[in-house]
Design a protein around this nucleic acid. Structure first.
Lengths: 145, 145
DNA sequence: AAAACATAGTTGTATATGCAACATAAGGCG
DNA sequence: CGCCTTATGTTGCATATACAACTATGTTTT
């Protein structure tokens, strides 16, 4: 298979010079570590983030959740829907605005998960190294400013 | 809504101390930048990665693609399927093993996209800063070793 | 107050992703 | 060569995610 012509830009471009690709690669490696540890609880990192963030606050207005986790509105609606169906959250209303509360079942669940979450975090940190850990903080800080 | 008991671990845990969460947050910020620039081409970062990696090599055995991009076998099957349907790749066989070739249409397409990909990368870099850029490289290197 | 604009939630649609189970093929070994 | 193990590809299933369009609500401006 030979291509018709030469492709200047493609030939000179480096796929690995892409910021998004680097982050996607990184998250795939780290996700695999967390999945391994969280598997027994049948929970994903996205779900655990919701459990921990909402659990910390006891309750949060739905719109706040998206802002905190930088998730699109519709993603929040549906991620929460699944967790509500499982009984970890309940949705109440402040006038017309949904507010999401963690349930006892949800809080018990997080308590159970946290030790494995910590283990995963330790494994990720050991792979990252102290310098890598600080580097990641810097990346996040710069992106958030 | 008051929870029955106190939740020691949850109360003392910091959701933001999570390596996976930090990376997920980072990728959401960066993805948004790339999406904005790539929108006009109706292409996603995942698709562009395939186009650039396969395009650079002209062709790649399917199993190599997963290794390079750290994608699960089934993800590769399906991501490629969509791109093949659109005519950007073709699948040939070396004996029984699929080998993915970029088509002329695919190569033309990447040539068109690359300028906007570069612009996105520049915007992401400017948000990251030079230090952030180096930090990201360090993170990725440490995770890959 | 009415109109215009902005915010928020939901649903339809599409992509991306991983795991489990299955089928097939490849390699190594007795 | 035939058996065992491993690697690979596919398909079923579930989750995560974003955008567009629609609806409802809230806010600002005239």
């Amino acid at each position: 298979m030979t291509l018709k012509k030469s492709y200047e830009l493609l030939e000179n471009a480096d796929p690995w010079a892409c910021i998004a690709s680097k982050l996607m690669l990184s998250i795939r490696v780290v996700s695999a570590i967390y999945r391994k540890h969280l598997k027994k609880h049948n929970v994903t990192m996205s779900q655990l983030s919701l459990l921990m963030v909402i659990g910390k606050h006891k309750f949060l207005p739905q719109n706040e959740i998206g802002k905190l986790l930088k998730l699109e509105r519709s993603t929040v609606t549906r991620d929460l829907k699944r967790m509500i169906e499982k009984g970890y959250f309940i949705k109440k209303y402040d006038k017309t605005r949904p507010v999401i509360y963690i349930t006892d079942k949800g809080a018990d669940y997080v308590e159970l998960i946290i030790p494995d979450w910590k283990a995963a975090t330790e494994e990720a940190k050991s792979k990252l190294g102290t310098d890598g850990e600080q580097a990641l903080n810097l990346v996040l800080n710069n992106l958030m400013r």
